[in-house]
């Protein structure tokens, strides 16, 4: 039940990323601040619903983005989102961690995600920029947007996932 709502919200966020955000970002920062809201939700899913849910959500929403905005490659976001979601879930799922730690984990996962994407594009020669250029150009600026989004959604997300994680914990205990 809860899960269905989460998927619906993620679909909505995916739409917002591509349609409303381009109008909200100041013109000088377009291309430098890149919204990745669905990915934040994948990370929350990894923390509060387990690594397999995160893997599945990451692969499917990443694939959605790859197919809808097919430019160079299919599978980049799918791979990166799935991988990051799974790793975070593997290390930290269902642990009781305070908010600041959660935010710093999300920040690090965002860095990893952007780096993986940069790495794939670099390997396939879509970009020739050095990593430092990419870091200063868009990875760091987008990190702040992602953190702000994660902070804004921290409390509602806890509520949406809470039923799920309690049930899961009970299952684990049994």
């Amino acid at each position: 039940m809860r899960k269905r709502w989460v998927i619906l919200i993620m679909l909505l966020l995916f739409i917002v990323e591509g349609t409303i955000m381009p109008w909200l970002i100041p013109i000088d920062w377009i291309g430098r601040i890149v919204p990745q809201f669905t990915f934040i939700f994948v990370l929350y899913a990894a923390l509060y619903a387990g690594r397999h849910t995160a893997l599945l959500l990451g692969i499917s929403f990443g694939l959605l983005q790859d197919l809808v905005f097919y430019g160079h490659l299919i599978g980049v976001h799918s791979f990166a989102m799935g991988l990051c979601g799974y790793l975070v879930g593997l290390l930290l799922a269902f642990k009781r961690i305070p908010m600041l730690t959660v935010l710093s984990i999300i920040g690090m996962a965002c860095l990893l995600y952007d780096s993986v994407i940069y790495g794939i594009y670099r390997v396939f020669r879509i970009t020739q920029d050095a990593y430092v250029v990419a870091l200063m150009n868009h990875i760091m600026p987008s990190l702040f947007l992602q953190l702000a989004f994660a902070l804004a959604f921290y409390i509602p997300v806890r509520r949406w996932f809470s039923g799920y994680s309690q049930k899961k914990q009970l299952d684990d205990a049994v």
Binding site: I15, E17, G18, T19, M21, P22, G31, R32, V34, P35, Q36, Q65, V68, F69, Y70, G71, H72, H77, I117, Y118, Y121, I126, T127, A134, N137, H138, S142
Partner: peptide, 14 residues
């Protein structure tokens, strides 16, 4: 225009 890709290396428009 219907949407713009949220990706720094792929600014595809629909």
């Amino acid at each position: 225009v219907v949407s713009v890709s949220p990706d720094a290396y792929n600014k595809t428009m629909k």
